[in-house]
Design a protein around this nucleic acid. Structure first.
Length: 773
DNA sequence: TTAGGGTTAG
């Protein structure tokens, strides 16, 4: 009887064991052909034990026996065993590997070293010309990120088939080399090789990083014409391509058209809406997924966690966390935990984020970047910096692009120029200076640490095809009070063909606002919609209120708010309240604060502003009322402080600080300065004293404001020629502003004050802001 | 009687 025809049907029905027994009874179980086939079939059905057992019993194994065994291991995920088996084949089998051996064994390499060794042996046997072997080598090198050797192998191949091209394109693409992948793709087309479905799904992922929607659409078209749309890989790749290019609707069209959807399809569509800021649509897809009986996996939960964060929905965030814990996904790899850290940080629950982070048995660079970003974005720059230093002490964790863009904003926030410069050095060392995001963060850091010249220099070096670095440099000039330059840069941006985005206008409008360029600001606000087809959002409206309010057009600002097509949020009313503080308008201040307390009763800043407005006009009863209101709600005033970097150390001063070792010197210096200032015409402005006390005490209060302590400390400790640069966490006080102008005249040095709002460069008795801020 | 190349993340 011929048993060969029985193997396949038996395997399909899971009847290999009975067949094996039958073969043994028939006396041909140990037949060479049957044994090899059994090794293969057992492995095919997942029974690797039996497969190995039969294999071991073959007395004189041929190459085919070995190939089946190795392939069996690989198919069942036993990569180490596959490599061991291959090594046994080389050392003591008496037979040699053939063309079929290498593609399989290359797949099982878990370290580059193994792959290289195999490559050497391939060369020794002269097998490198085989298309299958060559393609597998390309794949192996790319898997370990060695695209150089992959391309070398590719380049030297005398013959290539579609699989070879696919391997090289996918390899470049998976290593983030989209341009190179496109190059190979174009070469392939030039040589007349037509894309197959696999090529299509390899090429589609490069469209997003190249920002090439046209290419994506062309390939989509080609796929439809060639019937590839039925291929689930192709459709999934199309969904992802459209989603990443911001076309959630088109992604959904592909999704709707699909007759057969798999887990990747559902995940991709959920992620498509999630990444395009449509959490509700994403949740709808997720419901569809459940209705279709598709079980979620860890990637589904990643999207769900991000959706929870977007919606500010702590409760569903915790549900995600619980689900992940129950499935045991936190132990599998760091993916899920990193996502949870990110989610909790974005929800503002930084304690939870830190808990998850601390509980991670193994942390990778993404874990560290995520927690650093989390702290920084929750305003905890010190904690961010502390974790950055902890990270540096960890073995095997290397600073990457993500680390740099997460830590630089923290340094910018506290004005730690020297530490920021160290990062600049690292950037150069690891070759990231021409990365647009790193470059942009450096521009921002230098600008916020007072080095606008350095920011300009960097701007001239980074690639500037995207609006991102332009936004940074425009905003830099804005905070330094160079409104005209900001407008000039905006013009230049358009001359270079860079399309402004929403953030460009936030930077531009606030630059106008800081410099009092009311007409320009209004013009650009109108142009946003008319010329650039950008719909202003609530942030832009807040900028406009700020622009009008700061310039003293308080009624116009209020009128503007009442005519807004979007619901004004705290930033809008906050801008109005701030303007009321500057211009002493109690009535509108009352109105704005009523609105603010209704929207966000927890923000202590609004209570302080309102009480300042009352104090300014001497309405001490109302001051007390506001203060006790804040106190009843458990809010405490953010204490004002100023810092200065001297000898690589940041010194922090609070108002009336008496604990500094050089305290006596500082107050003596301030006393001398006060006398000199008065002789030059300085008159203290007591309206900035927010306590109802005697005049003499008022003078002392003003003199011991934190910014003055820091300036005096700088005068005492910094070399004569160096500018004195201080950082204040709140807005600089008006009287200190006047005083600093006098001080700059007396000591003949430049004084730079960065407050929570902008920069003030004091020189020879004047300030760069022209007293407008 | 055997083989390679494809889609989802931070």
């Amino acid at each position: 009887m011929d048993f060969t025809s029985l193997f396949l049907p038996c395997a399909r029905k899971g009847l290999i064991k009975p067949l094996h027994a039958l073969l043994l009874v028939s006396g041909i179980g140990n037949d060479f052909f049957c044994s090899n086939k059994l090794v293969s079939m057992y492995a095919e059905t997942g029974d690797i034990q039996s497969s190995r057992c039969v294999f071991n019993q073959i007395p004189r194994k041929n190459t085919l026996s070995w190939n089946f065994m190795i392939s069996g291991y690989v198919k069942n995920g036993y990569f180490r065993e596959a490599i061991n088996c291959y090594n046994q084949l080389l050392t003591n089998s008496g037979v040699r590997p053939d063309f079929f051996t290498f593609p399989v064994v290359l797949k099982s390499c878990e370290v580059l070293q193994d792959g290289r060794k195999i490559h050497c042996y391939v060369l020794k046997l002269g097998f490198e010309c085989d298309v299958f072997v060559g393609s597998s080598l390309i794949h192996m090198y790319c898997k370990f990120g060695d695209v150089g050797d992959a391309f070398k192998t590719f380049d030297e191949m005398p013959l290539r088939d579609l699989g070879t091209w696919n391997a090289m394109i996918a390899g470049f693409c998976q290593n983030g080399k989209a341009a190179e992948a496109l190059g190979v793709f174009e070469e392939m087309t030039k040589q007349g090789v037509r894309m197959g479905a696999i090529t299509v799904s390899s090429v589609l992922p490069i469209c997003a990083p190249l920002d090439d929607l046209l290419l994506g659409r062309l390939i989509h078209n080609y796929s439809v014409k060639n019937g590839f749309e039925c291929d689930v890989f192709v459709s999934n790749a199309l969904i992802n391509m459209y989603a990443k290019l911001g076309r959630a609707r088109e992604a959904n069209r592909v999704f709707e058209y699909m007759t057969c959807r798999d887990l990747v399809t559902w995940n991709s569509m959920v992620a498509a809406y999630e990444q395009n800021n449509d959490p509700l649509a994403a949740l709808k897809i997720f419901s569809g997924m459940k209705e279709n009986g598709q079980q979620p996996d860890v990637l589904t939960l990643l999207s769900l966690a991000s959706i929870a964060a977007q919606r500010g929905d702590t409760r569903s965030g915790q549900t995600c966390h619980g689900f992940i814990l129950r499935r045991g996904w936190t132990t599998e790899d760091m993916l899920a935990e990193n996502a949870l850290v990110d989610m909790y940080a974005k929800l503002g629950n930084i304690d939870y984020a830190e808990n998850v982070f601390d509980g991670m048995p193994v942390k990778d660079v993404i874990s560290w970047n995520t927690i650093i970003t989390g702290f920084a974005q929750n305003g905890l720059a010190d904690e961010a910096i502390e974790h950055f230093h902890l990270m540096a002490k960890c073995d095997g964790i290397m600073v990457d692009q993500g680390t740099i863009v997460s830590i630089l904003p923290a340094f910018s926030h506290v004005g730690a120029l020297l530490q920021g410069m160290v990062i600049h050095g690292i950037t150069i060392r690891i070759g990231l200076l021409h990365d647009v995001f790193v470059g942009t963060c450096l521009i921002d850091m230098y600008a916020k640490c007072g080095r606008l010249t350095e920011a300009n220099r960097l701007f001239s070096e980074v690639p500037r095809k995207s609006p991102v670095p332009w936004n940074a440099i425009i905003s830099s000039h804005g905070i330094h009070g160079n409104g005209k330059e900001a407008l000039e840069l905006f013009k230049q941006m358009q001359e270079e063909g860079v399309k402004p985005d929403h953030i460009t206008f936030v930077s531009l409008l606030s630059a106008c606002s800081h410099t009092g360029l009311v007409d320009d600001g209004q013009k650009y606000f109108r142009d946003m919609r008319r010329v650039y087809s950008l719909q202003p959002n609530v942030k832009h409206y807040a900028c406009m209120v700020d622009l009008l309010g700061r310039a003293g057009h308080l009624d116009a600002a209020y009128q503007f708010i009442t005519s807004m097509p979007v619901i004004p949020d705290a930033s809008v009313w906050g801008a109005l309240l701030g303007a009321c503080r500057i211009h002493g308008n109690v009535q509108l201040g009352d109105l704005a604060s009523d609105k603010l307390f209704a929207i966000d009763s927890e923000n202590v800043g609004y209570y302080v502003l309102l009480s300042n407005i009352y104090a300014n006009v001497g309405e001490w009863n109302r001051v007390d009322r506001v203060r006790s209101l804040a106190k009843d709600r458990g809010l405490r005033k953010t204490p004002g402080w100023s810092s200065i970097e001297v000898n690589n150390k940041v010194h922090v001063f609070f108002m009336g600080n008496q604990s500094h070792p050089q305290c006596e010197d500082i107050y003596r210096k301030l006393g001398i300065l006060l006398a000199q200032m008065k002789s030059l015409g300085y008159v203290p402005d007591y309206s900035f004293v927010l306590q109802d006390v005697e005049e003499e005490e008022k003078e002392f209060i003003l003199t011991s404001h934190s910014e003055r302590l820091a300036i005096a400390f700088g005068i005492i400790n910094l070399p004569l020629q160096t500018p004195i640069q201080i950082f204040k966490n709140l807005r600089v006080c008006g009287d200190c502003h006047t005083a600093t102008k006098f001080i700059s005249l007396i000591i003949k040095r430049e004084i730079i004050v960065r407050d929570s709002n902008r920069f003030h460069h004091f020189r020879d008795g004047t300030c760069s802001c022209g007293d407008y801020w």
